[in-house]
Simulated assay, not measured.
Amino acid sequence: MTKQKGLFLLRLAIILSGIIGLAFLLPDKLYKFTYYTNISNLLVVLFYMYLLYLGNKPYSQTIWRLKGGITICITLTFLVYAILLAPKAKPEDFYHIKNFTLHYIVPILTIFDWLISDKKGQYKKSDPFLWTVVPLIYCIFSLIKGFVFHIPIPEEPHSPYPYFFINIDKYGWNGFFTYFTAILVLYILLGYIMVFVKRLKK
């Protein structure tokens, strides 16, 4: 098997895994796109579809930098779930194909794709900060939706907030900013690790 064919199959597996996981939201659970997990997985699916559309054409630096942003975006999904959410998950929710595809399979395959395919020296020093745009926009959206408009989320114990660490009504602004700062710092540090790794000679 050639490298190009192997990469094609890997990316196809990422797309199909994401589609399988997101398909559980259809037709009556589209409100679950309130969750960062589903948004990040949708971004991965759409972006990798675009990569398959490009085929073997050489990518511009913009594409490589965007790919790095997509990778860290889904990596956050994996880490936050594994560290903060999995210990609190109900068995029927944890041992579900949707959970495994969206929280584990898609993120891990995407990270693997990044390790073996992303070119060296494509990132700028400012990229780890630029990559925070997605989680920052998501956080602002969640706060406006929950704190300002109080739009309920069905089946969510922390409604109108999608996650417990955004629940200002329960934990207050101090609790929120503690979690938010920790996650943001982790996000930026991961970004710089990615930049560093892709500057190594081997």
Rank of each mutant, 00 (worst) to 15 (best):
I111A: 12
K119P: 15
V197I: 15
I15K: 02
N167F: 01
V185H: 03
G175R: 01
I83W: 00
V44Y: 02
N167P: 09
W131M: 08
K125A: 15
I97L: 10
P128E: 10
P128V: 12
G146Q: 00
K202D: 14
L186K: 02
P160H: 00
I188R: 02
K120P: 12
F180V: 04
F147Q: 13
F33N: 00
S126A: 13
G175A: 07
L51Q: 12
L9A: 10
I19K: 04
Y161L: 03
K67H: 11
H158G: 02
V185M: 06
L30F: 13
V185Q: 05
I14F: 03
Y53D: 07
I72G: 06
G68S: 12
L43G: 07
L42V: 11
L30I: 15
K120Q: 14
S40K: 02
I153Q: 01
L43A: 08
P128K: 07
G6F: 06
L16C: 10
R11A: 03
I74A: 02
K5F: 10
G121L: 09
L9D: 04
W64L: 07
V195N: 06
T178R: 05
K29N: 14
Y161N: 00
V44D: 05
F100K: 03
L66E: 06
I137F: 10
K67Q: 13
A86C: 13
